[in-house]
Amino acid sequence: MVIDIIGAGIGGLTTAIALEQKGFKTRIFEQAEKIKPVGAGIILANNAMQVYKKLDLNDTIKNNGNPISSLNITTPNLKLLSKVDLNYFEQKYEVKNIAIHRGILQQILIDQLKSSEIILNHKLKSVIKNGNELALSFENGKNYKSSTLIGADGINSVVRQQLFPKNKIRHANQSCWRGISDYNLPPDLRNELNEAWGKEGRFGFVQISEDKVYWYALKSFMKNKDELTFNNVKEAFYKFHPTIKDIICSTSMQHINKAEISDLKPTKIWYNKNVCLIGDAAHATTPNMGQGACQAIEDAFILSECLSKYEVNKAFNEFQKIRLPKAHQVVKISWIIGKIAHYSSPFLIKLRNTILRLTPSSVNKKQNESIFKLGNI
């Protein structure tokens, strides 16, 4: 049996690796003409790194990224509001959180594939079910038949739109810039992620290699998503800490991309017989917990385990039962965090910051425990 995967992103590639190691043959259809080392950074949280440890990729990823042992929320001047110490989880699961360039991670995953075929320049146009067979049509005019299909094609998934039409993309009315800067953080900041919360916006940054910093900046908009351009990022964050301003100024325009923040309103159906959705195609989340790619990586591991134990329809059903509650929890909490982080009222900002300061570390630890624990088959 050949399992077809739509999308060669982090989720699709990890799924192919996991399936290969279970003895399955896969084909991956990717819309890009070339696999290029593009994109910004990515933080692989403890749960994702547990999966990569099981797939024998932990050391390679660790050697190409930067370990992160603390997650901090701060004021615009980098005064600490809340801290999650990750040392407990590092010791418990014997892996670290790793910040890495997304393009480097993608290449590591591609290099790990042994038998899977990556078919480039194939943007899915339509998928039609004919009994137990699927007809895949691509915009380049090519057609393929498939017996088992995994949709890993992102929040705008063609597979989901055509076979699971009852879904809704929610817009957070926030713009996000992501950039890679040629910059070295001070030693005390090199192994932590800092996210500075201000009024209607925030700025996060983390070292991803010896001389590269990944940063992201989010700002609310009222009506027009195009009203915020990079030309006013400096203006939007000019009152923030000097380190933040230095990071922005040391970034070349070609190393910055911008996107509107959206998620997928939670849906209860991820599969239909021999078709299954994973990652953002199934449960796209806002990036406020750093769990978007991590949840797709968990999907890959759990799905491969299910397919190795059950026939396809039962495997997809078991996968959905295991993964849906946690993925929806992430979507829900992340959406709430995004709203709280963008308060505009001085009173609410002061109240929010006070609550963050007074929240016991045990509460943060408990929340992350539920996120970092992998599901069981």
Rank of each mutant, 00 (worst) to 15 (best):
D4P: 09
G9V: 01
G11Y: 08
L13E: 02
E20W: 04
R27G: 11
V38M: 09
G41S: 07
G41D: 06
I42Q: 02
I43Q: 10
L44R: 04
A45G: 04
Q50I: 06
K53C: 06
K54S: 13
L55W: 13
L57P: 04
D59V: 07
N64Q: 12
G65L: 03
G65E: 01
S69L: 07
T75N: 00
T75D: 00
K79G: 06
D85I: 00
F89C: 04
E90W: 01
K92V: 08
N97M: 13
G103I: 11
L105Y: 05
Q106P: 05
Q107E: 13
L109Y: 03
D111L: 01
L113C: 05
S116D: 07
N130S: 15
G131A: 08
L134T: 02
E139V: 07
Y144G: 02
A152Y: 14
D153Q: 09
I155Y: 13
I155H: 13
V158H: 12
Q161Y: 10
N167L: 03
H171K: 08
N173Y: 15
R178N: 10
I180K: 12
N191L: 06
E192C: 09
N194L: 08
A196Y: 01
E200P: 07
V206P: 08
Q207R: 09
I208A: 05
I208R: 03
E210M: 01
K212T: 01
L218T: 15
M222L: 11
D226C: 00
D226S: 06
D226T: 11
K234S: 06
E235D: 11
E235P: 00
E235G: 00
A236T: 08
F237R: 00
F240E: 02
I244R: 02
T251Y: 10
M253T: 15
H255E: 15
N257P: 02
I261G: 09
D263Q: 06
K265D: 15
K273P: 06
V275P: 06
A284C: 12
M289C: 00
Q291H: 04
A293I: 01
C294I: 02
A296K: 05
E298Y: 05
F301H: 14
E305H: 10
C306T: 08
S308E: 10
K309E: 15
Y310T: 08
V312A: 14
N313F: 13
K314C: 09
E318H: 04
Q320I: 03
K321P: 03
K321F: 06
K326T: 10
K326V: 09
K326Y: 10
K326H: 12
H328C: 09
V330H: 05
G338N: 07
I340S: 01
I340G: 01
Y343H: 11
F347D: 09
L348K: 12
N353T: 02
R357I: 00
L358K: 10
V363P: 00
K366T: 07
K366L: 04
K366M: 03
Q367F: 13
Q367I: 03
I371M: 14
F372Y: 15
N376W: 09
I377E: 14
